[in-house]
């Protein structure tokens, strides 16, 4: 009984916070747009009994999903989101690994401080932090002023409102999600393994490739998923830092909801996005599972 209660709680949360909202979104995606509040039809009226429910069901169809295939904006947006997320994940990994490595090799008494510095940005609003990049990257921004000042460039670089700015924003925002799992893998790495590798004839560099990298693989994979999954649906960063040519599904979703007020199509976009995300999420879970088995 106690066991049941223990399991029931997380399942209840899963049900309440994930499955129910998903079903609502799914239902909206099968509805038709209407000039009403809420802006779709049919709406479920449970007081009407069985007949009303049947009528409600017959009002649902896959029109919106069909619509998504007719306009190439949508699949291009999905594709471009995946592409941006992939590149951004790789860039984040490149930026995060040396940081995590440095942290793991720092003297013991430094580590809590370094850890706090990594987490520190979370203490201010995400929106403000992304917005402040506008001030840094714009044509008159600090970066251009600085580069002009030291004479590396003679004309300001256009970074803001390009994909470059989006990448900068994503790397900046998601860096801690990459650093922390890699750090935790590297921190557990037994130093004598590197000594053993050297003893057997490895140089420092090859010991790094043959021992450190493989043994932090799970951290790398976890970090990549933690960055990749939320980045695909990212909306704030592309809309604040990206330009008109930055095509991301999060932005499309937002426009459907708030500019077009087409909730059914927006919901269909969201449902497809979720289906796309299920693949990496499942892979991520499998990786975690495998890691637990290897340790346990």
């Amino acid at each position: 009984m106690q066991r049941f209660a223990l399991i029931a709680l997380p399942y209840f949360w899963l049900l309440a916070l994930f499955l129910v909202p998903f079903l609502i979104v799914l239902k909206i995606s099968l509805s038709d747009v209407a000039l009403a509040i809420p802006p779709y039809t049919p709406t479920l009226d449970l007081s009407g009994g069985w007949g009303a429910f049947k009528e409600f069901l017959s009002g649902l169809d896959f029109e919106n999903f069909e619509f998504l295939t007719t306009d190439d904006l949508y699949w291009k947006a999905y594709l471009s989101s995946v592409q941006i997320a992939t590149i951004a994940t790789i860039l984040t990994l490149i930026a995060a690994y040396p940081i995590a490595y440095g942290m793991a090799n720092a003297p013991d008494h430094w580590r809590p401080t370094l850890m706090m510095l990594v987490i520190l940005p979370f203490w201010t609003s995400f929106l403000i932090r992304v917005y402040s990049w506008v001030g840094i990257l714009s044509n008159e921004g600090y970066l251009n002023q600085f580069l002009l000042g030291i004479g590396i460039i003679s004309e300001p670089l256009t970074i803001l409102n390009t994909n470059t700015a989006v990448y900068i924003g994503i790397v900046y925002t998601y860096l801690p999600f990459m650093i922390l799992p890699i750090y935790s893998a590297l921190e557990r790495l037994d130093g004598s393994l590197l000594e053993a590798a050297e003893d057997l004839g490895c140089s420092r560099a090859s010991a790094f490739w043959l021992v450190t990298i493989p043994l932090s693989k799970n951290g790398i994979i976890a970090g990549c998923f933690l960055v990749f999954i939320p980045t695909i649906g990212e909306f704030v960063i592309p809309s604040l830092l990206g330009g008109s040519q930055t095509l991301m599904i999060g932005k499309v979703l937002w426009e459907e909801f708030f500019n077009n007020r087409d909730w059914p199509v927006a919901s269909a976009v969201a449902v497809i996005l979720l289906l796309i995300l299920i693949i990496p999420i499942v892979l991520f879970q499998r990786n975690e599972q495998k890691q637990r088995e290897a340790e346990g």
Binding site: S192, A196, E198, L200, K217
Partner: peptide
């Protein structure tokens, strides 16, 4: 450096590569 010595060591903790 250790990798250039004609010396091999068996570690007290074994230090086997887990992967």
């Amino acid at each position: 450096p250790p990798n250039k010595r004609a010396v091999n060591m068996m570690f007290q903790s074994y230090a086997l590569f887990p992967h």
